[in-house]
Design a protein around this nucleic acid. Structure first.
Lengths: 250, 250
DNA sequence: CAGGCGTTCCCGCTGAATGGGAGTCGTGCC
DNA sequence: GGCACGACTCCCATTCAGCGGGAACGCCTG
């Protein structure tokens, strides 16, 4: 930028500003945004005002800034993930109806499991995932499925890197993780008791495209001691129906 | 911009680029984007590459450009609409389960009804709405509810402006529309047979905040000749439960 | 093999973006 | 009441990042 001390492009700045918003910090003052994005106050105000004019950001009653509906609309409309989500949603609903526990859809995104959708009955149990939230690949049932069928270099990178311990039951031993991944490839499903949350068991199955590549994971979060077979059967059926709805025939 | 012939700001350009993506055009070449956004080829390529680097856009296998997951994630995470959507989703699922037809959630956005969510059973009938899609206020059941409780100036603007005829049954007479809106305010619901689509009847109810202001509409799309009472009862119940889930007590 | 198209690279020009600073408004504390 | 602080707006001289025309490359297709 002309005169920019930070040496970043306009795009970088916009992204930095957008990234000051997090799932728990959805409204902030312009000055806050500037501080968090590392921008001088006057620059922050100028850019935020531009973004508000463009509709990407919005001001609420107290003049605090939020992400604008326009941005949500643009993103949701056109995202390639939307097609997957819309294809899967009816079948996720069926799973949700029968299993009556949290039902979720995740994809692989930058070495983490990104949750595209979550359905919950009013009376479902605890669940820390949220839509557009992320969980580590090795510490969630969805993540394990995605990892098991991911490219080799990614698998090795995760196996080599530090494996964060989320609960006492999270797999943190690379050898054990390697065995688990092999088992997932063989059985086509995973049961993950207490990996994310002590009181829950995650179960997940892969969704594949026509070449057999895994493009997503469908999962359910059951009470820790629940029977898993029924949920797995329903998830498998939903995965197959989703694949068919996407036009994949194998 | 330095040297810009079009006299627009960087932000404007970014928005123009993002807006070249539509629900039906989700992947395009960079040159296409440039043409549609009215940018010189070299500028378009430069900016698109920046956006790709920043993760707001993505390239697919054929080097075509798509909206990036990063953008979806940022938008979904932080949108104020997310709270409403997540609060309503469990109750929408219940409606969907019992009524077994399309169930949708819409808000008022720039003089149109913007659909935040749609649930459909695998066997539901036709429905032209889509998530993040829009419909005119006067020509959809959700829109009519939103319009009936909207600020007066908006109502008058819509009543004054041209009322597009979507089907033969769409209300295009201002006086008739005024009567319909009054009836919606009295009854707290609307039945819209064939306004959007000849073969369907939309039914919708308002969702209110604690001040009584209408913040959204819950609706269902039934076959044209279906009985509407049951769906309306379920929608009303879902609306009340959503309000309670949002912490509104009235 | 020529022509069209998407894309990348190059480069001199220049005016838009930059950010420091001063000023305004509102709020909360002493 | 007065003082301090923070959010925000306005102003303006400086300057370099963005700009876009054009050339060149590679890949189709007819």
């Amino acid at each position: 930028m002309a005169n920019s001390l930070s040496g970043d492009s306009v795009t970088d700045r916009l992204v930095r500003i957008l990234e000051t918003f997090t799932p728990t910090r959805t409204a902030q003052t312009t000055a806050d945004i500037g501080r968090r994005a590392g921008l001088p106050s006057s620059s922050a105000h100028r850019i935020v005002n531009e973004l508000v004019d463009a509709g990407l950001l919005e001001r609420d009653d107290e003049r605090r800034v939020r992400i604008g509906m326009r941005l949500w609309e643009l993103a949701t409309r056109s995202s390639h993930a939307l097609r997957l989500r819309q294809a899967a949603l009816p079948y996720m609903e069926r799973v949700q109806q029968r299993v009556r526990e949290h039902t979720q859809l995740a994809i692989l995104e930058q070495d983490e499991a990104l949750f595209l959708e979550r359905l919950s009955a009013p009376d479902s149990g605890a669940n820390i995932t949220r839509v557009a939230g992320r969980l580590p690949l090795h510490a969630s049932s969805s993540g394990l499925v995605l990892l098991a069928f991911a490219p080799h270099d990614l698998q090795e990178r995760v196996l080599a890197g530090p494996l964060a311990r989320v609960t006492a039951d999270t797999i943190v031993d690379p050898a054990a993780l390697r065995r688990t991944l092999a088992e997932i490839r063989t059985l086509g499903r995973v049961v993950a008791p207490g990996y994310v949350d002590e009181v829950s068991t995650g179960v997940a199955v892969p969704v594949r495209d026509e070449t057999g590549a895994v493009i997503a994971a469908l999962s359910a979060v059951l009470p820790r001691d629940a029977e898993t077979q029924f949920a797995l059967v329903e998830l498998h059926r939903a995965a197959r129906d989703t694949e068919r709805a996407l036009g994949f025939r194998r």
